[in-house]
């Protein structure tokens, strides 16, 4: 099976437990964090995670929904997108 990788981006005001919230859900559903980077610019937090979801038993939309709900609960905007879109738009 091909590797399924997604980019999870999290945007919002900085607070305690953002990474923990998201990574807990990923761990619960067997999704592996491959890379993670974050910046904080004047209280504004952005985190980008590269996640391998190949072995997650959850269907993509379901995983996406759970992550987005968890993000909502802590007031963060979360996007989950297949990495292909970024490769397509930015690489020839």
């Amino acid at each position: 099976m091909d590797q399924q990788k997604v980019i999870i981006s999290v945007l919002g005001r900085d607070r305690v437990g953002i990474i923990a919230t998201i990574s807990n859900i990923l761990a619960d559903h067997n999704a592996n964090i491959v890379d993670i980077s974050q910046t904080i610019l004047q209280d504004y937090f952005t985190m980008i995670m590269l996640v391998d979801v190949t072995h997650s038993p959850l269907e993509f939309n379901e995983l996406k929904k759970r992550i987005a709900e968890a993000g909502d609960a802590i007031g963060m905007q979360v996007n989950v997108q297949n990495t292909e879109i970024f490769d397509y738009m930015h690489r020839i």
Binding site: I7, D35, S37, I48, L50, F86, H90, R91
Partner: peptide
């Protein structure tokens, strides 16, 4: 970022294009 070879800045650019 590794693997995708796409830079963080480019990821943010795509997200900005869609969101804003």
């Amino acid at each position: 970022m590794i693997q995708t070879s796409v830079a963080r800045q480019e990821i943010m650019e795509t997200i900005r294009m869609v969101q804003m």
